[in-house]
Design a protein around this nucleic acid. Structure first.
Length: 585
RNA sequence: GGGUACUUAGCUCAGUGGAUAGAGCAACCGCCUUCUAAGCGGUCGGUCACAGGUUCGAGUCCUGUAGUACCCGCCA
């Protein structure tokens, strides 16, 4: 209905000028969806806004505007209500025609972007030599959903995995392994990843406690950075091992990423320093090269520096992020850079973006945006941990979700005396478990902290993945029972809306394109979740009130189309969240 | 100390400057001879943290206060 709104908006703008003169040219008619279905489909709030400017009562303005407007081809007669709201109800024939258009479209009436943007979505970004843990969950899931929505719009999306494959951590790890397990530095898979993680923790401990070790580790970083062959080989071995482990999780989650780690930008770091130097932004302070920031101060009120090159000559992550911005805009040609990381990095990104802007790297028309999300907390409201106090491995978390979904399914099969194949049970519990985790995360406003609960996300009722999967399954049930091929309902189908629940469902279906536009702008996947949940509710209400297969023609076919549109919308919407549907469950 | 975000029903959370602030869960009451009841309907539940301000209109914008979380110089 994007086109409908655009059309209404134009007609309102014209009518405003006709009624009140050029004084109101270009005024936004403030068309929004109504807050309550009893007010119709859309409302204009412009009369209240113009009251002061025109020196007239809002209702009088509304009245004049309504006299001027002719929307009889689209709408029922306009109504003025309350202080001066103009309520717009679309004609039933119009809704029916729009549904027919949607039905015929393989994109459900959602247009592709007119001029596709080059968009880079930077998400997931685990660290080499560490296991992916629950902290990576949100970035991975949210980033993937955002990328999918933009891809569906036809944007040219590059999904980048900015893995932590460089820096001090490797100095620590290599130095430590030289001492305790040199074989790991020369032989592939001499250690399994679990051991590597243990070694990493021990190395970190040494680094924090032992100044001599710290120095050796720093020196090792310099050696690595200078291109030393032995170090380079060890580094590559470690990276490969981690990479394979990450991939099993991405496969499990059905998520696709292009790896371009921090090390990728090594050749460009010196260029960052040179550029900043040339721009006159670089200041040497206590041996480190810094850019002093606007609007960031320490406790004495002095401007804070962003360290670009450390006193030992090394670079840190700010430098890498700056090099990445420069590369992504100037070499990749990106128009939009999206960083999906936890909100704790908000400061860091604000600082880096500021420096990039001042250095002139962010070209006109390029949007650089941090998409932050809150912490994953346990049911106690604290950072999610295992019972023993460790961070939760992502692998374990996903396995548990699947196991719980499976236990749940098997209980139900027993209760209902159903018999299903092993393959069915495996597949269903996998989809239900993974979807539940994804949906629980995505359905929350990403900026707030989120309380992780298996019980809630796997619940069969409420705003959960299983509820929506079930709505889809119900529709497939109709198709099986009636031997209906939704893809072949007939060429010239009439959709007829009579019942309240049919109207409510139809109106909701027609909002899909507006919603996708919004999500792609605001990058808030929870809005898509909300839409799909409401769609499922409205479908279930329709399903409850309106028999489909037993209905007389032409109602029967019309209802079948509503079912088909609902199923396709659910399938598409869920796919944009990275969630697959099931035919039966 | 500075910065940022948050505070909405018993719990978990939505909420785009517009009309009587909404869901889900929990509790209680109904509805399966029917396309899967994993569903639907209903009841109960609110000082939108507090105090000011802007506005025709504020949960939403601004200021202040309180509480909570996160970030703050060579880790990422």
């Amino acid at each position: 209905m994007n086109a409908t709104i655009a059309d209404l908006k134009n007609r309102f703008e014209d009518a405003l000028v006709t009624a009140f003169g050029d004084e109101v040219a270009g005024i936004d008619p403030l068309l929004v969806p109504t807050s309550n279905p009893k007010f119709g489909d859309y409302q204009s709030n412009v009369a209240m806004a113009l009251a002061k400017k025109l020196g007239k009562a809002p209702r009088a303005i509304a009245d004049e505007l309504v006299q001027t407007l002719d929307l009889s081809d689209l709408c029922e007669p306009l109504e003025i209500a309350g202080p001066g709201f103009i309520n717009i109800t679309l004609k039933t024939e119009y809704l029916q025609a729009q549904l027919a258009v949607m039905q015929r479209s393989d994109r459900l009436g959602v247009e592709t972007a007119e001029s596709p943007q080059r968009v880079i979505v930077d998400f997931s970004s685990p660290n080499i030599a560490k296991e992916m843990h629950v902290g990576h969950l949100r970035s991975t899931i949210i980033g993937d959903a955002i990328a999918r929505v933009l891809e569906f719009q036809g944007q040219d999306v590059l999904r980048l995995n900015h893995v932590g494959d460089w820096g001090t951590q490797f100095g620590m790890l290599i130095t430590y392994l030289q001492e305790v397990c040199p074989a790991a530095l020369t032989t592939a898979d001499a250690l399994d990843l679990g051991d590597l993680v243990t070694f990493y923790k021990k190395a970190k401990q040494r680094f924090d406690d032992d100044p001599a070790f710290q120095e050796a580790a720093r020196q090792q970083v310099v050696t690595l950075q200078s291109g030393d062959q032995k170090s380079d080989r060890a580094w590559k071995l470690l990276c490969n091992q981690s990479r394979r482990e990450f991939q099993t999780i991405y496969d499990l989650l059905d998520i696709c990423l292009t790896e371009r780690g921090e090390s990728f930008y090594n050749p460009y770091l010196q260029g960052v320093v040179d550029d900043l130097e040339q721009a006159g932004l670089l200041v040497e302070d206590q041996g480190a090269k810094c850019v002093f920031l606007d609007g960031f101060t320490n406790r004495e009120g002095e401007r804070l520096p962003l360290i670009i090159q450390k006193s030992d000559g090394g670079y840190n992550y700010a430098t890498t992020d700056l090099a990445a911005i420069r590369y992504r805009i100037h070499t990749d040609g990106a128009n939009r850079l999206i960083y999906v990381t936890d909100v704790g990095q908000a400061n860091h990104f604000a600082q880096v973006f500021q420096v990039a802007r001042r250095a002139g790297w962010i070209l006109d028309g390029v949007e650089v945006v941090h998409v932050p999300f809150g912490l994953v907390q346990g049911e106690d409201g604290k950072r999610l941990k295992t019972r023993s106090g460790e961070t939760v491995r992502l692998r374990d978390l996903l396995d548990e979700a699947i196991a719980r979904a499976r236990a749940d399914l098997e209980t139900r099969l027993k209760e209902e005396d159903r018999h299903e194949s092993q393959a069915f049970i495996e597949h269903t519990s996998h989809i239900v478990g993974i979807s539940a985790v994804k949906y629980a995360d995505l359905s929350q406003n990403r900026t707030s902290n989120y309380i992780f609960s298996f019980d809630k996300m796997l619940a069969l009722q409420g705003n959960t993945a299983p509820y929506m999967l079930y709505a889809y399954v119900r529709i497939q049930g109709i198709s099986r029972k009636g031997q209906i091929d939704f893809g072949n309902l007939g060429a010239d189908i009439k959709i007829l809306l009579h019942e309240e629940t049919e109207f409510a469902l139809a109106r909701h279906l027609l909002q899909l394109d507006e919603l996708i536009g919004q999500v792609s702008q605001e990058l808030m996947p929870n809005r898509l979740c909300q839409y799909l949940f409401e769609l499922s509710q409205k479908f279930n209400q329709f399903y409850d009130r309106c028999p489909v297969l037993q209905a007389e023609e032409p109602t029967r076919t019309s209802r079948l189309v509503l079912c088909d549109l609902t199923a396709r919308t659910l399938k598409l919407g869920l796919s944009l969240l990275g969630i697959q549907v099931l035919e039966r469950m």
